[in-house]
Design a protein around this nucleic acid. Structure first.
Lengths: 195, 195
DNA sequence: CGCGACGTTGATTTGCCTCAACGATTGTGG
DNA sequence: CCACAATCGTTGAGGCAAATCAACGTCGCG
């Protein structure tokens, strides 16, 4: 089990320098969870009760609008965090779905355990702030892309940024992430391979 | 000058409960700045050296892509914060521009003063985390909107969300914020008023 | 006054969507 | 272990929302 902590500890120390003892305490707060493929960690209407670090596996976070159209907000693999932060912190109903695409191993924080962690080790406030900041940056880039780039460039950028994802997740999810129709993505791919 | 602090203090206490003494210290860290209309607080290529709270006035944050197309990431008025957080924290060159649209009065934090604040009053870590979280939420909503809504609905949603902005900022900036052409926004508005 | 920034309008074009049909693959229950 | 259903990707035809381009009116300002 010990090596299970390696990936998450490596990930947090990328943002903030923690002592071994601090990490040990941090690790003691976490709950380990194993979930099968196609499992919902969150559904619209529920209050989000987890902040989950992916040790192994793959998931998607998505929104369904009033017309029934899905928009994928996040395609996450090992090393990423899953949550609806707004719902988690304000304990308000979420509008998002979080579904595993592969069997997953996760480290879980709940509102209670996270609050406990932050109370006892305020240094983690900084970690989570930096984590959210990075997410915000990613989001900003994506919004610029989505608005100002044609579909083909969005796709090329996507595969260069996340080269492992096309081999792991169904293509129509990538289309939804990029904000284009699956049929059109298929046509783009055809055009690209021709060259 | 004292009442100048009212708006920013009200804003921070919305997220975290601070004592009067804590706010007094916080206020002593801030630098007051007054800038005219059409002033750049940040230009692409520079490292962002400020995190600015708008006391009075209005500004835009935008990105220019390789084709020369502008995308407006933020239209900010009184009570909002302006910055490129990624550039500010990692001291890396920004890709963004921040330009005042009206004469502005600002409270400024620099990397140095912010670090000083966080060192001496770690409680502010929490405030800034919650602030960034809220920004992230706004961004997520906007991305969903941008991808899944037709232009007219995006515009109607915008004016109901920010009713004061259309009267303050040129219309083509709103078009850029929504990711549509200024001509098309004009046509949408015509169609709406007809009804 | 004259220039530049801004909004409007119409004509034309286009990037992308929708719909429908069709293989290929996977998985599942009898 | 096979049959059949789902799920997924591809392809083509046709349509539409929104972009582009160009011309014009208006306003505020140096």
């Amino acid at each position: 089990m010990a090596q299970q902590f390696d990936s998450i500890n490596e990930s947090v120390t990328k943002y903030v320098a923690f002592e071994a003892s601090e990490l040990t305490y941090f690790n003691s707060i976490l709950t380990y969870k194993r979930v099968p493929k196609k499992t919902f960690l969150l559904q619209a209407g529920e209050v989000c009760s987890i902040e989950a670090f992916i040790i192994k596996g793959c998931a998607r976070v998505y929104y369904v609008n009033e017309h029934g159209t899905e928009v994928i907000l996040q395609l996450a693999i090992e090393g990423w965090w899953l949550s609806d932060i707004a719902s988690f912190h304000e304990q308000t109903p979420s509008k998002l779905y979080i579904e595993t695409l592969e069997a997953c191993e996760l480290w879980i924080l709940t509102p209670t355990t996270k609050e406990l962690l932050l109370k006892s080790m305020p240094k983690f406030e900084r970690f989570f702030r930096l984590l959210v900041q990075r997410n915000l940056s990613v989001m900003q880039n994506r919004l610029c892309q989505t608005i100002a780039q044609p579909a083909q460039e969005k796709y090329l950028d996507f595969i260069s940024r996340y080269p492992s994802l096309p081999q792991r997740v169904p293509q129509h999810y990538i289309a939804s992430y990029l904000g284009i129709s699956p049929e059109f993505l298929s046509k783009i791919r055809k055009k690209i391979t021709k060259k």
